[in-house]
Simulated scan of single mutants.
Amino acid sequence: MANTNADNAFMAGSDNDTLYLGPAGTDLSSVTALDSAIPEALTDCGWITDDGIIIGFDDSVDKIRGHQGHGVVRTYMSDSSTTFKASLIEQKLRLLTDYMSGESQAAEGGGEVTITAKASRQVVRMAAVADMFDVSTGRHRRYVMPIVELGERGDQEFQVGSLTVLECNLEIIGDYKLISNESGLLAG
């Protein structure tokens, strides 16, 4: 009989799931545990669509074949990258300004803001932390990504009966960390 444990399955979507984004160069070296404080430079992105957060692994493997029987002798990773995707519902100044590759200026008195956006966007380098909690066990996963780049953006749609969303497709640059207290991961 198989040795199964449903507590080892992870289901995100709790009320506490949070994505934090901030400027490149934000020092995340103090974020070493699940209860480490999030640096103030990072913005809590707020509501995320029910599509959730997606960490994508884009890998291509090439096969080296031998002469005898044209069998596979070795394989090697010819292309590999990791993406982090989330569609943000809340419109916050720093996030929208980065999304539009723009610059913002608040009017005197604080009643208005103007974002001057570029018609051709640029890649925006950022830092990110994502906290996800299992909805039934409360176990916690924290992804710490010192360098992500916002490149491809989705369309901003303004339609009756739907929310305007910022589709963030972030490329993870360099190493990132996963910190967790999940029992299945602690068991080794």
Rank of each mutant, 00 (worst) to 15 (best):
Ala119Ile: 09
Cys168Pro: 12
Met77Val: 15
Ile48Glu: 02
Phe57Asn: 06
Asp58Asn: 15
Asp17Ser: 06
Ile55His: 08
Leu185Ile: 00
Leu28Ile: 05
Val124Tyr: 02
Ala9His: 02
Ala119Tyr: 05
Ala2Ser: 07
Met126Cys: 03
His67Ala: 12
Lys118Leu: 12
Met100Tyr: 10
Glu90Val: 07
Gln122Ala: 10
Asp17Tyr: 03
Ile89Ser: 15
Ser29Met: 03
Arg142Pro: 02
Gly151Trp: 05
Thr75Met: 11
Thr18Gly: 09
Gly161Ile: 10
Ile179Thr: 02
Leu166Phe: 06
Ala86Asp: 05
Ala86Arg: 04
Gly154Tyr: 01
Ser104Ala: 14
Val72Arg: 09
Glu171Lys: 15
Leu19Phe: 03
Thr114Leu: 12
Asn181Lys: 01
Met77Phe: 11
Leu186Glu: 08
Met100Leu: 15
Val148Asn: 02
Ile147Ala: 12
Lys85Cys: 08
Glu108Gly: 12
Val73Tyr: 10
Leu34Ile: 12
Asp98Phe: 11
Ala24Val: 02
Ala107Gly: 07
Ala107His: 06
Ser78Trp: 04
Thr116Ser: 12
His67Gln: 11
Asp35Tyr: 09
Glu112Gly: 09
Asn169Asp: 14
Asp51Trp: 05
Val160Gln: 07
Ser104Phe: 08
Thr97Leu: 13
Gly102Glu: 07
Ser14Tyr: 05
Val73His: 09
Glu182Phe: 00
Ile147Lys: 10
Ser101Phe: 13
